[in-house]
Simulated assay, not measured.
Amino acid sequence: MFTKGSGKFDTLDVVRPGGRIERMDCPKQGIIPHDMVHYAVEHTLKQRGFLGRVKEGEAAGFHMEAEAQSDAVERLVEVFQGDAWSGGTTAAAEMMALYAVTCSARACPALPIEAKEIEAVRTAIEALTMQWQAVKVGHSLTLEL
C-alpha cells in the first residue's frame, strides 16, 4: 500500500499475512515511487525482483543480498525510472540498449526483453501514474502482488 506524503517522502506499507506491516519511506522523485515502478515491471513481465522477494518473505528494506534475477530487474526498473524522468518517450530500442549497457557495467545478466514488453511496462507505468496523481496527500493506493 503506497501512501502519498506531504513532505519529502511517500510510504510503502507491506501488509503481511496476519496483518503485520513493514513500512518503508519512499523518497519523492517527481514520478511514481521507485517501488511502484518495480510493481509495473515485475507484475507486467512476471519477473521476480524486490517485490517478489518481499512477497516470498524477505524483509522489505533497502539492502538485499545480490541475486542475478532480482538484480537484473533492478537495472530494468532504473531504465524505466530514467525514461519516466525524461517524459516516457525513449524509443524501445534505445531503452533495450541502455539496459544492456547498465547490466554489463554492473556485471549483471540482462533479462531477455523485447520492444513489445517495453511498451507493455510503459503502459502499466502510465496507468499507475494516472492512479497515483489522483491520490490525495494522506491517502493510499493499494496494489496486489
Rank of each mutant, 00 (worst) to 15 (best):
T44Q: 05
K28P: 00
A40S: 14
D10H: 02
M24H: 05
V37W: 01
L141Y: 01
V135T: 04
S70R: 15
I21Y: 10
E126M: 04
R23K: 15
M36P: 01
V73L: 09
K46H: 14
A97F: 04
G52L: 12
H139I: 00
D13H: 12
R48A: 10
F80L: 05
T102W: 01
E22R: 12
E22V: 04
V79D: 03
A120I: 04
P33L: 10
I118H: 01
E78L: 05
R53N: 15
A105D: 14
Q29H: 11
L76G: 07
E65W: 03
A60I: 03
G52Y: 08
E114Q: 13
A59H: 07
R48C: 10
V135F: 03
E56A: 15
M96Q: 14
I21N: 08
K28M: 06
E58R: 13
L76N: 04
K55H: 14
Q131C: 06
E94F: 00
R75D: 02
R48F: 09
A127F: 02
G87F: 02
C108L: 01
M64R: 11
R16G: 05
L12G: 06
E119F: 00
S70W: 07
S70Q: 08
T123H: 07
V101C: 00
S104E: 15
S86A: 11
M64Y: 04
G82F: 01
Y99K: 08
G57M: 09
A107L: 11
E67T: 04
E42N: 07
V77K: 06
A68F: 03
G52F: 09
G19A: 08
K136M: 05
G61H: 07
G30F: 01
L76D: 05
D71F: 03
F50Q: 13
G57N: 11
A91C: 02
E65D: 12
A84R: 08
I125Q: 04
L12V: 03
A134F: 02
